[in-house]
Design a protein around this nucleic acid. Structure first.
Lengths: 249, 249
DNA sequence: CGTGCTGTTGAGGACGATCAATGACGGTGG
DNA sequence: CCACCGTCATTGATCGTCCTCAACAGCACG
């Protein structure tokens, strides 16, 4: 099934490409025509494995995923979470040598759009804006990496708070429920699940999270204050204005 | 003074651009003509400050620098070290919103090449290979970020060992002396200077570092083994072969 | 109604931070 | 040449954060 025939799920993808500088039109259409929908991917499955990095490329349509790696001892390190509209395996696509043993793992039941790598590269030749959108997305991912590096030195409470703020921002303005488990958060924060749990209780006692089993943010403003969260590093709008004129010569 | 008149320092820059896909020729010449040499920058000085991010762009010609940020409490977080040939402030150039309060700081006496941003963007329009080289460099930086995130969970000994391995690889095959202080390493590893010092002593007792005051690696192979170091994440050669054909349509 | 995953709680211990003081070295100026 | 200074390196002691191990409770699933 091709994506451009499915109106419903075009939304997150179209919206994401727009924020990356690909407006509705020939560029977007060319991209959507390449997408093959594949759904029914279950939690825990590997979406972009270590072997397939060079050939596969994908977009997340529904669900939640993470860009992660496994350490020798089995511990999971999560670099970033992915939500609908995100590119999956972008690093492996742009820079095959990087993060060799990393993978993209489904954290909920997902549907994705797969794209043939060669076909995409040909379309990029015809539609440079698509290539630039990929680069921008990569830089933004790098920006998330950098920010996460930065908060590594902060104590666990603020680190987790920051992580939650980031997810809220990426999920959208109105969302207050973060579709992750405490274990997912722990693996992303670089903390043990036990300690993460104690931090969650602390956040609840501070009135920032609800007492629900799921992760629900009650007081977004105070959470951001506690985390010293500044969303600018997630904002690609500034970079757009500068580059559109130049690159499309 | 313009760079292309100075044969000596062209070397690191030319070499770096070559690894990024810009061979000797019109593309390289166009780039070198933009570079204005500025030397005599002393240790501790800020090269690319927080205010100048949007306008400045620079290349490191001689010396050592770091991409860093200051926390509220004054602690310094180093994201990456820069050596001759590296682009400085690349993130701010490509993605103005990212890592807002970051800066590039000289860690030794440096000379840099400054480039006018608008002029560079115009040349990129005429020489697309230059633009692609910048993107590649950014992805590679992101790759370093990701790797550093990954090793954050490892204990201090391996973390520092890995950091040192990375510097050796970036400095070149024959280099065994790393031009940094223990404090620099500590700020990059996210450890206190005191603890870093104790790790250094441990590395010396293991016969991996010399007893000199400077950081000299005696046994590179064992150090890499200890660090579980895999240099592939620093290797951009794979990404080159794939993209040269496509982008230059 | 088991089975499995997630969340929760307790106790003990390791790693690394912090504070404080001293030593080593290079540079500067008298 | 030597005294002075600042930066970096080193050492000891104490303390806190976070990890590990272990057990159990809640909930969803078949």
């Amino acid at each position: 099934m091709q994506l451009h025939a499915v109106v419903g799920v075009v939304c997150p993808v179209g919206h994401r490409l727009e924020t990356l500088g690909v407006g509705a039109g020939a560029d977007l259409d060319a991209f959507l025509k390449l997408v093959e929908v594949r759904d029914g991917i279950e939690r825990g499955q590997s979406i972009v494995g270590r072997t397939g990095v060079a050939k596969q490329f994908a977009i997340l349509l529904e669900g939640v995923a993470c860009f992660s790696t496994r350490h020798e001892d089995g511990a999971r390190q999560i670099y970033a979470f992915h939500y609908p509209g995100d590119f999956l395996g972008l690093h492996g696509f742009l820079f095959p040598g990087s993060l060799e043993i990393s993978q993209v793992e489904a954290l909920a039941n997902c549907s994705i759009g797969t794209i043939d790598r060669d076909a995409l590269e040909q379309e990029i030749g015809r539609h440079p804006a698509l290539g630039h959108a990929l680069w921008r997305a990569a830089i933004m991912e790098a920006s998330i990496f950098g920010q996460r590096l930065c908060i590594t030195r902060r104590p666990a409470l603020q680190r987790i708070a920051h992580l939650l703020c980031e997810q809220l921002t990426r999920l959208g303005i109105d969302e207050r429920v973060i579709p992750l488990t405490q274990i997912d958060v722990a693996d992303a924060a670089g903390l043990s699940a036990v300690h993460t749990n104690r931090i969650f209780q602390e956040l609840r006692q501070l009135g920032l999270l609800s007492r629900q089993r799921l992760i629900e943010v009650v007081n977004k403003e105070h959470l951001q204050e506690l985390a010293a969260f500044d969303a600018r590093y997630l904002d690609s709008s500034e970079s757009l204005s500068r580059w559109d004129l130049r690159f499309d010569d």
